Deep mutational scan, measured.
Amino acid sequence: MASQGTKRSYEQMETDGERQNATEIRASVGKMIDGIGRFYIQMCTELKLSDYEGRLIQNSLTIERMVLSAFDERRNKYLEEHPSAGKDPKKTGGPIYKRVDRKWMRELVLYDKEEIRRIWRQANNGDDATAGLTHMMIWHSNLNDTTYQRTRALVRTGMDPRMCSLMQGSTLPRRSGAAGAAVKGVGTMVMELIRMIKRGINDRNFWRGENGRKTRSAYERMCNILKGKFQTAAQRAMMDQVRESRNPGNAEIEDLIFLARSALILRGSVAHKSCLPACVYGPAVASGYDFEKEGYSLVGIDPFKLLQNSQVYSLIRPNENPAHKSQLVWMACNSAAFEDLRVLSFIRGTKVSPRGKLSTRGVQIASNENMDAMESSTLELRSRYWAIRTRSGGNTNQQRASAGQISVQPAFSVQRNLPFDKPTIMAAFTGNTEGRTSDMRAEIIRMMEGAKPEEMSFQGRGVFELSDERAANPIVPSFDMSNEGSYFFGDNAEEYDN
């Protein structure tokens, strides 16, 4: 993207840094990872977990959730003011799984939030270390993106479920800051804005008074975040219109849905970061690795190297396929839920299948599930090659597409044709070009129609051997075009429920 120079890199967003050079960025990201790792080690000690239990991804998720809940100030305040039966607002906890007599047992633990905050700050040299908290939120978000298709949420806001490739980060909490905003897809931002506008339509006082002023500035800020994701002048001009509207209503909703559809071809720039579970960072720190000293990046080879040398386990339900569970977590670790499966298959070195073909449910185990038949197995999170994460949407291309997802959002900077089903997408653009945004709409449609099938995206960008740390010898991959490109292809993934 041309304006790259004016933006802070995501590592800076990730670490609240002012302008830093590459070495400083690597050190501050490393410091953040160190903090998460030290916190995780301490929690495993508190909970008396064995090494194996500490490497269980379900335990990692519970521990991450506990610290996120302990620092969720708004919710904590709300819980104190609106006490609900049987919930102690000062405590947080969740299921911890232990191996007892050759069987997995679930144990519900409860801790004072104050105590968890103390352990977290102690692991982070006394700081609140917001960057580390956001990092864990993005890992949870990436896992949700890989596990669930947001059909219901899309339909509720009037969008087409086939636009799911635009929904990265749709389950990120509001408090995820600049680093969170960077990884949100165009569809996620559109959905947040539509929800806001709908509230304004239904509630006369939404934009009024002292609160209304705050609401208005939040609305304009979200519009600017979305505008910054678009790469064409016409899309940005249309966002200006939406932002400046005196009284946002149905016309703005129409414009936003139009823009979301246009992003299936004229893709937005959305950041991709490899955020790993805390149970990967903990053992690495415990083994003596100093992330701050060595430096770390979320968008280069580092996460690949770390996963190459990590042992992570997962509980497996009786009829689940461990290899499929591994694929789910591998995609989440690489922030690749909406990437082209052919690119992923090449990088991973084994075939990556669409969601609907995987015999696996989510990673988390519900409290009512029976533990008797639970097994555990090693997650295979290694890769054959590594590639640089991208934040450009890439230019655009036609490809055989599917009944489910009709476009992709690249996660890796790797040369390819970008699949999208042009006739299906263009069919949504018939007729409606009147109104105050008509010239911009016409211009956007013209650009979409001009998108050429034979153009290559990320020209000359390749993948790298894991021994090639400096990215000196790019390998331009070859793809098996007979395979499906979309992950949520004609899909039956479970729906995400809060």
Results as ranks from 00 to 15, higher is better:
N432Q: 14
Y281P: 11
I197K: 01
G37F: 11
S170M: 06
R436F: 03
L61K: 02
S353W: 10
A181I: 00
P419Q: 08
E455K: 06
N321D: 01
D72Q: 04
I25G: 15
M13C: 11
I201H: 01
Y10P: 06
A403P: 06
D302F: 07
D51P: 10
L341Y: 12
P173Q: 15
T188K: 09
F71Y: 15
F489R: 00
A178T: 12
N250E: 00
C164L: 03
R118D: 06
Y385F: 13
M105A: 06
I301D: 04
Q168T: 10
E210V: 02
T215M: 06
R382N: 07
V414R: 01
R470W: 06
L358F: 09
L358T: 14
A451W: 13
S367F: 11
S60L: 11
T171H: 05
T396S: 15
T171A: 01
T157W: 06
V476F: 00
A278D: 09
M448S: 06
T232W: 08
A387V: 12
K113C: 03
M66S: 12
R74W: 10
P318D: 05
S486Q: 03
S335L: 10
V312D: 02
L341H: 05
K91W: 07
L61C: 10
W207A: 02
E320D: 12
C279K: 09
V100T: 08
Q364A: 10
I445R: 09
E494Y: 04
R55V: 10
F412E: 00
V352F: 07
I225S: 12
R195F: 07
E292L: 15
M136S: 07
R204A: 08
N334W: 03
I253A: 05
N498L: 04
P318A: 12
D302H: 14
E24W: 02
R261C: 07
M196A: 12
R342N: 09
Q311L: 00
Y313C: 05
M136R: 00
W139Q: 09
D421W: 00
N125P: 03
T360D: 04
S28P: 00
S359P: 04
K305A: 07
S482W: 00
K7Q: 04
I138A: 11
F258S: 01
E292K: 07
V100S: 12
I57H: 01
E320K: 12
L49T: 14
T396N: 07
A471T: 09
Q4K: 05
L266V: 15
L307R: 03
P303V: 12
G158M: 14
S413T: 10
E73H: 05
V299G: 05
A237Q: 13
S376M: 04
A471Q: 04
Y281R: 09
R436Q: 04
V280E: 05
N142R: 05
E434K: 12
A129I: 07
L108Y: 09
I96K: 04
C164A: 15
F489G: 00
T92A: 12
S326P: 04
A337M: 04
S486P: 01
L154T: 03
Q415L: 15
T151S: 13
P419S: 03
R175C: 03
S176D: 02
K91E: 03
G169A: 14
P322T: 13
E53F: 05
L328M: 15
Q459H: 11
E11H: 03
H82F: 15
T147C: 14
G356Y: 11
E11V: 13
T350H: 11
Y148I: 13
T15P: 00
M159R: 04
A336Q: 00
N142I: 05
M426H: 01
T350K: 08
R384W: 05
E14C: 12
N124P: 10
S217N: 11
C275M: 08
D16H: 07
L344G: 09
R75W: 09
I445M: 00
H272W: 02
A278P: 09
T350N: 02
E375M: 03
I33V: 13
V280H: 00
D439S: 00
D290T: 07
V285S: 11
E484R: 00
Q327H: 06
L266R: 12
L306V: 06
V414C: 15
L193I: 06
L193P: 06
A271N: 05
G485M: 07
I365W: 13
S367R: 08
L358V: 13
E454W: 06
G228K: 10
E455C: 13
G282F: 10
K184L: 07
G462I: 00
L108D: 01
I41R: 06
C333T: 12
M447A: 06
M1R: 09
F39H: 02
A403T: 15
G93C: 02
R400T: 11
A233L: 02
M43Q: 06
K87L: 01
E18P: 13
I25P: 01
M374Y: 10
M426N: 11
R150D: 09
L108W: 05
I475D: 05
E18Y: 12
K113R: 10
S84V: 03
R19H: 11
A451R: 15
D88P: 03
P453D: 12
D372P: 04
G158Q: 09
D421F: 04
S478Q: 15
E244G: 12
S84L: 12
G282N: 04
R195L: 05
D128M: 04
S3W: 13
N142Y: 08
S457C: 00
N21E: 15
G228E: 14
R156S: 12
F230R: 00
D128K: 02
A251N: 08
P83H: 08
N59E: 07
A472S: 09
A27G: 03
S413N: 10
N205Q: 10
S28H: 09
E80C: 09
K293L: 04
Q405K: 15
T232V: 12
E11S: 14
S274W: 09
R382A: 05
D51W: 00
S383C: 12
A411E: 00
T433D: 02
N21S: 14
A286D: 10
S377E: 11
S9W: 07
D421G: 00
I406G: 01
L154A: 01
E380C: 11
T23Q: 14
S467K: 14
G393W: 08
S376F: 09
P161L: 04
T45H: 03
N21A: 03
M32W: 07
N368E: 14
M191E: 03
R317S: 09
E244Y: 02
S486Y: 11
F71D: 13
L259P: 02
N473D: 00
S245H: 01
S217G: 02
L358K: 04
P283C: 02
M456A: 14
L172R: 04
R195P: 11
A336R: 11
D290V: 07
S482N: 15
N142Q: 08
A234F: 03
T424I: 07
N492K: 14
M238H: 12
E46Y: 02
F206P: 05
R382G: 11
R470L: 05
A366R: 02
M159H: 05
R267N: 07
G431C: 06
G185W: 02
L379P: 09
M66W: 09
T188Q: 12
T232C: 11
M43D: 09
V343H: 00
M163T: 15
V329K: 01
L256Y: 01
T437Y: 02
E114W: 15
K77G: 13
T62H: 07
S413P: 03
V190C: 14
R150F: 03
L256R: 06
A70P: 01
R389Q: 01
Q364E: 01
R74Y: 04
G200W: 08
M159V: 11
I301W: 13
L264C: 07
E46L: 03
E454Y: 11
R236A: 06
G54A: 14
T424S: 12
R174C: 02
T188Y: 06
I365H: 07
G249I: 08
N368Y: 02
E114Y: 13
A2R: 00
L79S: 06
R342L: 05
G94P: 07
R117V: 13
S359M: 00
I253C: 01
E81K: 08
F338C: 12
E210H: 01
S335E: 05
T396H: 14
S69E: 07
A260H: 08
N76A: 09
L110G: 03
K273A: 05
M447T: 08
M13Y: 01
I225Q: 11
S326W: 08
G54P: 12
N492T: 07
Y487K: 08
T45Y: 01
C279I: 04
N59P: 07
E495I: 05
I445T: 05
R150K: 13
S467C: 13
Y385T: 06
S245I: 01
E449D: 14
I445G: 08
S84A: 15
G300K: 06
R8K: 00
T350G: 15
Q398H: 15
A286K: 05
C333F: 04
E114D: 14
R156T: 09
T424P: 06
R208L: 06
T378H: 03
N144A: 14
R162P: 10
C44H: 07
I41P: 13
K422Q: 12
P477I: 13
L79M: 13
R26N: 00
